[in-house]
Design a binder for these strands. Structure first.
Length: 590
RNA sequence: GGCCUUGUAGCUCAACUGGAUAGAGUCCCUGACUACGAAUCAGGAGGUUACAAGUUCGAAUCUUGUCAAGGUCACCA
């Protein structure tokens, strides 16, 4: 039982004993005491005025007095207006600290024996990854880490949109204008090379249309578009040459994506390809049609009626029997269940698809999927630039690889005035700057609540000071630096019993650390990495302040030194763990 | 037009889900390094929470209306 639960239970018991009124302990309103007041936790007593028939101040005094007597962990209290502030005893904090220190993965939840599948990234093969994907990827990765820490068994998947007319466009343009260019011959990443031919197709198409329009033809169609359509037909007919070309270009793209994923430090347990899944939804829909989940119109198209949940009628099979996007998603979900038998399935997809997923989830429910209640669309807002929306046509897209290179360069420039880093080898410096640059980028994106649109200014966004990833890294690096010195001097700080009444700032740090397990559970439940980000910042900030206020290696007594060293060790561990959940690495030095 | 998001310091974001005087960072001022690492710390300035009503002990948070920004309402993905 943690402190919060102890207090909640205590309040419930006191209310029952004093006012003969029952409250559920988990309903007791309790929060961390604001720092301008004394105390650790605050109980809001307004809800009990009716039962007690007293003024809030008197109720606070009653409850406080009762609990100080009844609960050993509470050593003191004060009442301000309707708020009861309770102080937790040093003995409790120290005992808690000693126990938590020994737990290997402190903060992680017990195994829930439930499986979660997280789908994220899910790129098109005709464009290199950009800033929008970066937000998606970081959210998906971080949520996976958090769910795992919370006790779920997690598998990460992506679905690659590798078929359709858009692929044929790139293929055709490469065939016509590429002169056999390869990533090797051009020195380009595969995804960029292919992306260029996709752009080339568009410009060619435009030119042809302009030409035809000039000849006076109304609403002309470019011949090159027809060629692309023919290519798609060939692809669908399994034409060997077309398929070979398709495989070749796709492989280049996957290699390119792979490099970017590696730089971002993410990986997947399984990839799904639309070319392999786009047909399976149809059979499943036809099966369910028999059972009356769907209905057929006169023209042969298949629909579902979702009017009762205000989602209108939705098409799932065209009149010619071919699939639509929804059909594919139905099939893919079922395929995934066959593969993983998951209890929950999380889709990390932009918020423009909220309606689509509402419909999909309703359909899965009606199809009787066992995991229907565990379906979650983790939607996130678009990333805006100072100039407005990112638009590939206007060339205002922020490329992922360039962005990563930029933030690392920014970290390098900033590190030049650091005295420590110049002692490292060039390779070590690069590694440190990579950690710092990526921390800045990742933290910047993950600290924002996913559902909000966010603004990204390439010039200013990647700060290294203030409420940033590097700030948190710095707190950890400081602690580790002290611990290194302590080790050199062979200081043993395992026993802190000689320091029974530590400074308040010290127990405050312990109190923050005590929140970590609950933070992980809440972040997992809400699919919200920003909760973890905020926690790490809070801990780092308090440690920075503590570090300035209290000498650690040069503490006034050995007992104080031991306590502060052990606390520093714990802070470093928790920060490393928390940032790991965000996909951020902690360097040894910076 | 229907439905869904969002609107908080100049800027970027918080606010423990209805609780105390709405907090951080950044920017702008002031101060602290012959060092347990200044990518840090301390202090100052900066707010009618878009606007207006309502609900109650108590509202940035809930309700309604208005305004603004965005999304969605495809036999596209």
């Amino acid at each position: 039982m943690n402190v919060v639960e102890i207090i909640q239970k205590g309040v419930a018991k006191a209310v029952e004993a004093l006012y003969d009124h029952t409250v559920a302990p988990e309903k007791v309103n309790i929060s961390v005491t604001r720092k301008e007041f004394t105390g650790d936790y605050t109980v809001v007593v307004f809800p009990y005025t009716k039962a007690a028939k007293k003024k809030p101040e008197d109720i606070g005094a009653d409850l406080g007095a009762f609990m100080v007597k009844d609960i050993p962990e509470i050593q003191n209290f004060n009442v301000i207006k309707g708020f009861l502030n309770v102080e937790i005893s040093d003995a409790y904090w120290l005992n808690f600290f000693n126990e938590a220190y020994e737990i290997p993965n402190y903060g992680f939840g017990a195994a829930k024996n439930k499986k979660v599948l997280v789908e994220f990234s899910s790129p098109n093969t005709n464009k290199p990854l950009h800033l929008g994907h970066v937000r998606n990827i970081l959210l998906g990765w971080s949520c996976s880490q958090i769910l795992e820490a919370a006790g779920y068994e997690v598998d990460k998947v992506q679905i690659i949109n590798d078929r359709g007319i858009h692929i044929c466009k790139s293929m055709l343009a490469w065939q016509k204008y590429g002169n056999g260019a390869t990533p090797e011959s051009t020195g380009q990443k595969g995804d960029r090379l292919v992306g260029e031919y996709y752009v080339k197709f568009s410009s060619e198409e435009k030119a042809q249309i302009a030409e035809l329009t000039a000849k006076g033809i109304e609403k002309p169609e470019a011949p090159i578009l027809n060629e692309a359509r023919e290519m798609l037909l060939k692809w669908e007919a399994n034409d060997p040459d077309t398929r070979a070309l398709w495989s070749k270009l796709n492989d280049w793209v996957y290699q390119g994506f792979g490099e970017t994923y590696k730089k971002l430090g993410v990986s997947f347990d399984k990839n799904y390809y639309e070319s392999e899944t786009y047909l399976i939804g149809k059979e499943r829909v036809l099966e369910a049609l028999e059972k009356g989940v769907f209905y057929k119109k006169e023209d042969g198209s298949v629909w579902i009626d979702l009017e009762d949940v205000k989602l209108d009628h939705k098409l799932v099979l065209r009149a010619d029997g071919t699939s639509v996007y929804m059909t594919q998603d139905i099939g893919t979900a079922m395929l995934r269940y066959d593969d993983f038998q998951m209890n929950k399935l999380v889709y990390v997809v932009g918020d423009e698809q909220i309606y689509h997923f509402k419909v999909l989830f309703e359909i899965m429910k009606r199809l009787g999927a066992s995991y229907a209640d565990g379906l979650k669309h983790l939607s996130y807002g678009m990333v805006d630039l100072p100039t407005g929306k990112m638009k590939s046509r206007e060339g205002t897209v922020v490329d992922a690889d360039e962005l990563i290179a930029e933030v690392i360069e920014e970290a390098r420039k900033n590190s030049l005035n650091s005295g420590v880093i110049v002692e490292l080898t060039e390779e070590e410096q690069l590694s440190v700057n990579t950690d710092i640059g990526l921390a800045a980028l990742k933290y910047f994106i993950l600290k924002v609540n996913p559902q909000k649109r966010m603004l990204f200014d390439p010039k200013e966004s990647v700060d290294l000071q203030g409420h940033t990833g590097p700030y948190i890294q710095n707190a950890c690096v400081r602690a580790k630096s002290i611990l290194r010195k302590a080790k050199e001097e062979n200081l043993d700080f395992s026993d802190i019993s000689g320091y029974p009444n530590p400074e308040k700032a010290g127990t405050d740090l312990i109190a923050i650390i005590a929140r970590y397990p609950a933070i992980i559970q809440a972040a997992a439940e809400d699919y919200d990495p920003s909760a973890v980000a905020a926690f790490c910042y809070d801990l780092a900030k308090n440690y920075h302040r503590y570090y300035h206020e209290f000498p650690i290696l040069k503490a006034e007594s050995e007992a104080a030194r031991s306590f502060r060293l052990k606390l520093s060790d714990m802070v470093a561990k928790v920060l490393t763990s928390g940032m790991e959940l965000l996909g951020i690495q902690m360097p040894e030095k910076m």
